[in-house]
Design a protein around this nucleic acid. Structure first.
Lengths: 151, 151
DNA sequence: GGAATATAAATCGCACACGATTTAATCGCA
DNA sequence: TGCGATTAAATCGTGTGCGATTTATATTCC
């Protein structure tokens, strides 16, 4: 018996941290549903989008765009490479740097997944302007958080 | 050579999914800084807060509160148990159910960590009313997302 | 009462995320 | 020129998340 009136959930009313956490979980699940069809995870999807916008980014540049570091990105990119979607090459001018570029298959997939954001937007059932507003609010919050982490 | 003028970051302008993702990462990092001192991770912190609000919750009830399932919660709770913060007991009336309750140490820690949210709030540097507004916005978004996942 | 069904946790495998460290290449500068 | 400092990735270990399955207990209903 599930008694909705008793609010088993809800010890975190007004905890912004929890709202962000829960929204992240929920977004992740929705994206998983949509991206499973393409065999991609959400961060992998982000890498493809970033590379489509500018190919041949270095691991560090991808990290700046996605707010991730090499310890997360290296294995992720290697999985994309194993899937035949990207290629990793050491920069000839600076052998420390690894440049990531889309393969033909990766470029094709990057085009295919352009349909994802509007599809998600529609599924959420909140009007577009409001979603944009939310994004702006969150970016402001994330900026505040990153400032706080840096001290 | 890092060319800041070229905006290596930023291929996700206006992508709400990315704003949520990035805010989640940023929140997680800030909380990690603060919670490390208590030897807690963020989800572990949430479990303690939930149990302080009502002790003896079942794994399922914790799952409803945190939007997680037993596959995530069981190992997490076992780590809390190993740390001596909670106790796990099979319900005598229904042996399928596991009830989780705070140990003395857990209760004490649950009191200690009450200082965390205000500390975080201050670190962010965004006024309290605006934070509450953001939480409300995000809850609305998360509700929309969960509706969409259920189809 | 007993077999089919349902439910609660637990288990397993995989993919992030991240602190800490390591390796390799480049830079800075005396 | 050469050596210490810096930088870019990679590696390692731990802790989530989650789909899929398994195990154990409870319920249903004939």
């Amino acid at each position: 018996m599930t008694d909705a009136s008793q609010t088993a959930a809800g010890p975190f009313e007004g905890y912004l941290c929890f709202s962000v956490y829960a929204a992240g979980l929920a977004f992740n699940r929705l994206y998983k549903q949509v991206l499973d069809r393409f065999g991609l995870t959400y961060p992998q999807y982000l890498v493809l989008v970033a590379l489509r916008q500018r190919d041949g980014r270095t691991v560090s540049e991808l990290g700046e765009a996605l707010f991730l570091e090499s310890n997360t990105l290296t294995p992720l990119i290697k999985r994309l490479e194993a899937a035949g979607l990207v290629e990793r090459r050491r920069d000839t001018r600076d052998e420390r740097v690894v440049r990531v570029s889309l393969s033909d298959a990766g470029r094709a997939l990057a085009v295919d997944i352009e349909c994802v954001p509007p599809q998600i937007g529609e599924a959420i059932g909140i009007d577009h302007a409001r979603l944009g507003q939310m994004a702006q609010t969150l970016d402001e919050l994330a900026a505040g958080l990153r400032r706080a982490v840096r001290d």
